[in-house]
Amino acid sequence: MSDILRLSLPLTVWIAAFSAVYGLEGVVCSDRWTGAGLTLGQGRAALVAAGALAIALQLALLAGLRLPRFASALPWVQRTAAILAGVALVATVWSLVPVVATSLCL
């Protein structure tokens, strides 16, 4: 794993997860969702599952970057990558809270 990847992967995954979850919300709130015979309750469940998957992915990155197999030879890269992974985890939880805590499709 290159150092560039170690530094950039967590926040890139956060951006992708953010776009995917809120894109999914758009699909859930469209006429096509109910047109396919799905309910808003199922839509909420899908959103929560997608959010949980995104958080699990960030936790895996945070833990994985500490493993010797994926660790950087440069101490400052290792420290910065750990900080950025922590920031990405907090950002993921923070930005996905509305998916769980707020009304859907109003």
Partner: peptide, 15 residues
């Protein structure tokens, strides 16, 4: 501020 903003946003919805 985020929590309060979300709470206000909920109260503005057309229920």
């Amino acid at each position: 501020l985020t929590a309060w903003g979300l709470w206000i946003g909920e109260r503005l919805l057309p229920r």
